[in-house]
Amino acid sequence: MEIQKIQALNDFIAYIKLEKNYASSTVLNYEKDLYYFFEFLKQEGVEDLERVAYLHARLYVTQLYDEQKARATISRKISAIRSFFRFLNKEYQLDDAAFQALYHPKKESRLPRFFYEEELTNLFERNEGDDVKSLRNIALLELLYATGIRVSELTSLTVKDVDLSLDIVRVMGKGRKERYVPFGHYAHEAIVRYINEVRTPLMNQPHSKLFVNMRGGELTSRGVRYILNEMLKKAEMHGVIYPHMLRHTFATHLLNNGADLRTVQELLGHSSLSSTQIYTHVTKEHLRNTYMNAHPRA
């Protein structure tokens, strides 16, 4: 039985979106990855999915390396195709051995970038103000740093997700896993002032999202990145800031100040402790640099 590629792809996308609850960004990337793979198969003269063999899998990965794709990108593309063929095996009894035998490339050993405490203090102080934009931006920055949530989690927050009596935010993470993250008095004060003085006056269309753009609409992930980079420029700090840097900073500062790894894992919403352990390398590097700069005989 010949399996129609596009129909099989559509069925797979519906499966990971509706049944597996994959994040929308993952669904989009997997769909792009599979279209890219279909183009490769076409160039190789393979029209039927039943004819895909281990040789094709190896040639495809070799092509990705030749194109100098990042290791993380190659790993994701392999995961996309493995999941797709696993689905085909389940639905159509298609042999999925070709890609299951592939190894993921080793991750590049790059430590997460984060802000030192004095850098973050400068970023906050240089962006303070009583105008609408400053109050909104400071509340956004305070909440990202106080909770370590992802940018997608931030833009999904509704007003009801923030409990200002207990100073806890309800977060819907990857795979629609719910968690509750506390925040401190700095974030509390910034959010209260933002809601009272900014959000309500800006609203010109009804919606429940916590953060709004300057037209009162829902703030997007791209909007958050733009805001953070404008704040970086205002603080006259060099480089580029991205929302995940604040997540890295949150985790690193907690560990530097004595928090245990399991607690940080739970706060970040990591399903595996190994994902959180990267921050122990960051803190060790921080300790080493501090020692080398401070010890007279280092």
Score class of each variant (00 low, 15 high):
residue 97 A to H: 05
residue 34 L to Y: 01
residue 100 Q to N: 12
residue 275 S to H: 06
residue 239 G to D: 09
residue 174 K to M: 07
residue 235 A to W: 01
residue 68 Q to V: 06
residue 239 G to I: 06
residue 47 E to R: 02
residue 182 P to W: 13
residue 250 F to Q: 02
residue 90 K to F: 08
residue 250 F to H: 07
residue 220 T to N: 01
residue 120 L to H: 02
residue 148 G to Q: 09
residue 38 F to M: 13
residue 95 D to I: 09
residue 69 K to V: 03
residue 295 H to P: 00
residue 269 G to A: 10
residue 173 G to D: 14
residue 84 F to C: 04
residue 202 L to W: 06
residue 296 P to Y: 12
residue 21 N to Y: 11
residue 4 Q to A: 13
residue 255 L to H: 03
residue 83 S to F: 03
residue 272 S to I: 04
residue 225 R to D: 09
residue 1 M to W: 11
residue 61 V to L: 15
residue 244 H to K: 07
residue 191 I to C: 01
residue 208 S to K: 04
residue 199 R to Y: 10
residue 268 L to G: 05
residue 159 V to K: 11
residue 192 V to E: 13
residue 23 A to D: 12
residue 244 H to M: 04
residue 35 Y to H: 14
residue 248 H to N: 14
residue 205 Q to T: 12
residue 247 R to I: 01
residue 289 N to W: 03
residue 71 R to K: 11
residue 52 V to D: 09
residue 156 S to P: 01
residue 178 E to I: 05
residue 230 E to S: 05
residue 139 A to Q: 01
residue 191 I to L: 12
residue 200 T to I: 15
residue 25 S to R: 04
residue 166 L to N: 14
residue 129 G to P: 02
residue 207 H to Q: 14
residue 276 T to R: 08
residue 45 G to W: 06
residue 272 S to N: 15
residue 228 L to H: 09
residue 139 A to Y: 01
residue 125 E to F: 10
residue 92 Y to S: 09
residue 1 M to H: 12
residue 61 V to K: 09
residue 249 T to G: 08
residue 19 E to I: 10
residue 147 T to A: 14
residue 180 Y to H: 13
residue 153 E to S: 07
residue 32 K to I: 09
residue 286 H to R: 14
